[in-house]
């Protein structure tokens, strides 16, 4: 892989990582705060309970 291709690929990966970080920061979190560690209901179960 030439240095130029390496640079382009690396910059594309950086852009992807940056976009992903920003989107995950701005997106409304499905399980805000608990990190999924408190065992809160999944969306599927919540929908089932609402029926």
């Amino acid at each position: 892989m030439t240095p130029e291709v390496q640079t382009l690929t690396a910059l594309a990966l950086v852009a992807l990582a940056a976009i992903w970080l920003v989107l995950s920061l701005l997106a409304k979190r499905r399980r805000p705060g608990c990190g999924g560690n408190c065992g809160c209901a999944t969306d599927e179960l919540k929908a089932k309970l609402r029926r």
Partner: peptide, 10 residues
């Protein structure tokens, strides 16, 4: 296994 470059450094 990789040539010197930005991707390798990343």
């Amino acid at each position: 296994h990789m040539a010197e470059g930005d991707l390798r450094n990343l």
